[in-house]
Amino acid sequence: MSAITIEKLFLRYGEQEVLRGIDLEIPENVCFAIMGPSGCGKSSLLKVLNRLVEMNHNVKISGDVKLFGNSIFKMDLTKLRRQVGMVFQIPNPFPHMSIYDNITYAVKCNGIAKKKEELDKIVEWALKKAALFDEVKDRLKMRANQLSGGQMQRLCIARALALKPRVMLMDEPTANLDPISADKIEDLITELKNEYTIVMVTHSPGQAARVSDFVAFLYMGRVIEVGKTEEVFENPKNELTERYVTGRIG
């Protein structure tokens, strides 16, 4: 079964049509990249998947999205978002909270664990998964805004992983990082895709080529081309895709 099935998805903000009929199948435990020039609707598409896009008051959505066979629009929002974690373009750990509290707050709220020992264990596990544990293990009570940008982003990944999601959404997770930190995040993604379905938005074809198994090219709210990453990059069927992956548009 596919992790995510998107069927005839349309989305508009007021008068402005952003997604114009998207159909996609995202298999389980792969890294699926959505690439395209800025303004093509890729971030909006990603935010449909955990229904974060509905924060915007005048947004209208039609079509359906299924998560492991169930329509997300019929799911309880908190349950959906527990299963679908998200990492954002700007690293956004809660700056006034400690590293430890950043991870445990939602764990406690969602009733996953309450006791100190359990929470300690989850924090350690999540930080290890996010390859951050060794750097911060002695200062878990430190405020999260003292970390470097790359560390913050890995903390955000740990925060999302702690809820044991099945899908991770990543919205240009390296866009605001230095090259070395970006490298680390890319390594981490290749690591995580064995256990999680990762849907990543990127505006860099290079990044899509490096880390993803499947890729969809989005342009003006439509999927122009989709397939295995090597195939799309080596033999693009559409001229627009070719021009994009070779850096001539975008």
């Binding site: 908190t78 998200m86 954002f88 956004n92 700056p95 709220c109």
Partner: peptide, 14 residues
């Protein structure tokens, strides 16, 4: 900043 609200919402919080 909107990013913190988004982060909180994405964690399945009420």
């Amino acid at each position: 900043p909107e990013v913190y609200r988004e982060a909180a919402l994405s964690l399945g919080l009420t």
